[in-house]
Each structure stands twice: as structure tokens, then as C-alpha cells.
Design a protein around this nucleic acid. Structure first.
Length: 348
DNA sequence: GTCTCCTAGAGTTGAGATGA
DNA sequence: TCATCTCAACTCTAGGAGAC
């Protein structure tokens, strides 16, 4: 379990002082929208537009080692927010926890230096909270109450999102970060294959919606140019599933596909992303052995990172030929699916 | 309207600290 | 040794404010 720092606790990381301290979300003001691909942010010309947002200083007790002058604290609290800052806050709000590398990938073209520097500013301004698990591991960022208020103010009273701030690290953080990694790679790569994420429901949003016989790690829909739309259920393995629980889950999906569907979706493809290729192979073979052939596709987290989630990385249940995410729409499915010439338009 | 000054953001580099 | 972090220093660029 990591420890949390707030903007007030400048240098607390160095001093090893913890401030342990929980969270839902939807779209960005004008920037990189995770639910709509890259619409609106075509590598914006620098510098980013600045918003005149004055952060009111607050006082927080610190140890003598951490204490800095009021002018220093006030300076840290005063940050001119750019559109990108709001995109960052929104991304963190939507996904609960993001690592430095993930935010760098999403908002800084992979530049860790740049993301470190900006994230530090947002941390100092009290908009983000950081969790340091280990010095050899990426920091993990979550939304701070001040950041949540800023997003609420930015949306106005009509905003449908409720920006809740995590008070502690997720009990299954690695799993959540892996899901977020897939989501980021989808958001970044799907536009290049003529698609965009129309909407995304994380598991906690699905749980809040009601319990089904199986709850995917995420349910999302991609709108394809000239192809209509397709809904996907995402399963991300974190080396935790036993073979039996995995099979049980797939049986749940099969039953859902053959009956009334899942969360109102009667036609969807199942995507399984595993950390371990051997794990994937084992479970693929297991599904073949029990003659279970749902509309399911496999890939590894490494392949997602290397080629993008939209790339030709998706392996069928009983074959070795990889397909791109877009190709899956046309794939002829077995008895559970319809011949995939026509993408689904059923939905929520 | 134009110019100058100041402030602030973006990005890079390097040093030092820390734990695996 | 490696990976990651913070921090300082630096250059470049852009926006705002004030003077003319």
C-alpha cells in the first residue's frame, strides 16, 4: 500500500511523511476525450490556452522539515491552468488511478520529464493526490477534492458526472492500472483505424447500475466510420484468475449472449487482455477443450502497449492469425454470433 | 496599434536520493 | 546498477498590462 501526498505536503515524498486518506466520471472540455478518441485535440499548438484560475491558499500543518514559507506555498497554490490540465484532471477522475507513465503517454506524447513537471504543479496546487508505492515504481495519481471541485465548477450544475475522490488506494490497484492501460491504448489507437470510443462503462459504474450474472472489467462501444458500432466487454487478467473462475465467467458471458444480454447489450464481443501470454494460451486451450466458443478474442498487455489496442493483435479462440479490432466486426462468428457482416446497432 | 516588460508554461538537462 | 523521483537551472515562447 502506498502513501498519499497532497499539494500541501510539499516534499513529503522526500520526508517520507504519509497522508493516507475514496470516488466516477465523463467528458473533457475540449481536449483529448477518452470516450471520443482524440476528437478536439490534434496535437494542439503550444502553449496551451491558459485559464485564469486563482487557487485560494489553504493552510495545512507540516513538520518543520517540510515547512516552507507562506510565499512559497502561495506560489505553489497559484497555478495558471491550461486546457491540458483539465484534461489530465478529467482523465484521472474517470479512471480513478493513473501512473506517471500513463499520464505521460496520454497527455505528454510519452515525455516523462514533461509530465513529471506538470503533475508536480498540479499536486502543489492541491488538484491531484499522489501515491508513492515504491521509489522504483511509477507514482500513482488520483483526483484530490480541490481537483474534483474544479471539474464540477467547470461543468456547471448540470454536469452529470460526480467527481468523487479516492481516499485510499484501490485494493486491486495493479488490475485497475492494467484496465486503464488498455483504455488509454484504445483511446490513442482506435482513431487511427477509423474508430472512436462512443462510451465507456467501468466496472464500478456497472456495479452501480445493478448486478448481472457477470460483471466485465469494462463495457464500451466503438463507433466505426462506415461500419456502424460495436459493443465490447473487456476482461483484463492480472494473474489472479483461476482456470475455474475464468471458465465460470465465460459461461456467464455465453449465457448472457444467448439470453437477454448484459446491461442491456444483447450483442457484444469479449476481449481478454492478459499480462502473461502463457496464461492466455492455457485458457484459450481450456475453452476449446470444453467446446465453449463465445465471441472472444485474446491478446497480451505487452502487445497492446507495443502495437496499440486497435492493431492486429487479437487472436481468436482456435487459431493463430491475428486480427485488428476493426477486423473483428467482420469476423464470421459461430452459432452464438451472427455472421458478422453487419455490425450491431443494438444497445443501451 | 505597437512596443516593452514581466510573468508563466513547456521542455530539457543534470544532480542527488532512494529502494530493488 | 537501474529505475524513479524531486529539484534547480536554463532557454524559448506566449499572453497580459502599461506606456506611447
Amino acid at each position: 500500500m502506498g502513501r498519499a501526498l497532497r499539494g500541501d505536503d510539499r516534499g513529503a515524498a522526500d520526508a517520507g511523511v504519509g497522508c493516507p486518506g475514496r470516488e466516477s466520471a465523463r467528458r473533457l472540455p475540449s481536449g483529448r476525450d477518452l470516450d471520443r478518441g482524440d476528437r478536439g485535440r490534434e496535437d494542439p499548438p503550444r502553449p496551451y490556452r491558459v485559464r485564469a484560475v486563482s487557487m485560494t491558499p489553504t493552510t495545512t500543518a507540516t513538520t518543520p522539515q517540510q515547512r516552507r514559507s507562506r510565499s512559497d506555498r502561495d506560489r505553489a497554490r497559484r497555478v495558471r491552468l491550461t486546457e491540458r490540465d483539465l484534461w489530465i484532471l478529467e482523465a484521472v477522475g474517470k479512471m480513478r488511478f493513473l501512473t506517471t507513465s500513463q499520464l505521460a503517454r496520454l497527455h505528454f506524447d510519452g515525455s516523462r520529464w514533461a509530465s513529471n513537471k506538470r503533475l508536480r504543479r498540479l499536486l502543489d496546487a492541491g488538484l491531484l493526490r499522489v501515491w508513492i508505492r515504491d521509489l522504483a515504481q511509477d507514482n500513482v495519481y488520483s483526483l484530490a477534492p480541490r481537483g474534483a471541485r474544479l471539474l464540477r465548477d467547470d461543468r456547471g450544475d448540470t454536469a452529470e458526472e460526480s467527481w468523487v475522490t479516492p481516499r485510499g488506494l484501490d485494493g486491486n490497484l495493479d488490475h485497475l492500472l492494467a484496465i486503464n492501460q488498455v483504455r488509454i491504448e484504445l483511446a490513442l489507437s482506435v482513431p487511427s483505424v477509423k474508430g472512436e470510443i462512443a462510451w465507456w462503462r467501468s466496472d464500478w459504474e456497472l456495479r452501480a447500475q445493478g448486478r448481472e450474472r457477470v460483471i466485465p472489467d469494462a463495457l464500451f462501444r466503438i463507433q466505426w466510420q462506415e461500419l456502424g458500432e460495436q459493443t465490447f466487454a473487456l476482461e483484463v487478467d492480472n494473474r489472479t484468475n483461476s482456470s475455474r473462475s475464468f471458465l465460470r465467467k465465460i459461461l456467464g458471458y455465453s449465457a448472457a449472449l444467448q439470453s437477454r444480454g448484459l446491461y442491456g447489450m444483447s450483442d457484444f464481443l469479449i476481449l481478454v487482455v492478459g499480462r502473461d501470454s502463457q496464461w492466455l494460451e492455457r485458457y484459450r486451450l481450456r475453452l476449446v477443450a470444453v467446446r465453449l466458443r463465445p465471441r472472444i478474442w485474446f491478446t497480451t498487455l505487452a502487445a497492446v502497449g507495443q502495437h496499440g489496442a486497435g492493431g492486429s493483435i487479437w487472436k481468436p479462440i482456435d487459431g493463430d492469425a491475428n486480427s485488428s479490432l476493426r477486423d473483428l466486426v467482420f469476423f464470421p462468428y459461430g452459432k452464438e454470433g451472427r455472421a458478422g457482416e453487419t455490425p450491431t446497432t443494438t444497445g443501451r
